[in-house]
Design a protein around this nucleic acid. Structure first.
Length: 121
DNA sequence: ATCCTGACTGTTC
DNA sequence: AGAACAGCCAGGA
């Protein structure tokens, strides 16, 4: 893991980042959601929200990572390349008790994960 | 190695 | 509240 440092820096860093990202996502409590930016920050990659999305995209089918708990900063399910998957995510969240607002947006002040413990609200 | 695209975000209009 | 911009990084062509 740490034997390579300079030449493969890019690839290595990328893989390590993915691991960190997944580790953070795994920590999101059931019935809570976190934004891509928040996950990035907690993973030690501030400002790399986009990469978090990319990492999610790279997740294999049947993963144990609760990727559906990651939404964008607006509290909405981000549109994806493959239409329909958004509904899957929404379904998974509703199954955990997350309620969606009028325009399919989740009130982050209520379901947002504070990054450590479960906020009262 | 260069260019384009994308599960994003904060700032500015 | 919604739209335009620029920044960031990885992967495929």
């Amino acid at each position: 893991m740490r034997k390579l440092r300079s030449t493969r820096r890019t690839v290595n860093a990328g893989a390590a980042s993915y691991r960190r990202i997944y580790a953070v996502v795994r920590r999101i409590p059931r019935g809570r959601v976190a934004s891509y930016g928040q996950v990035a920050r907690l993973a030690g990659l501030p400002g790399h929200a986009r990469q978090v999305g990319y990492a999610m995209y790279a997740l294999p089918a049947g993963t144990k990572v609760p990727w559906h708990r990651v939404v964008n900063a607006a509290g909405a399910v981000s549109r994806r390349r493959v239409p329909g998957a958004e509904l899957t995510q929404r379904m998974l969240l509703e199954r955990e008790g997350v309620r969606f607002g009028a325009r399919g947006r989740i009130p982050l002040d209520r379901y947002g994960w504070n990054g450590r413990a479960i906020a009262a609200r």
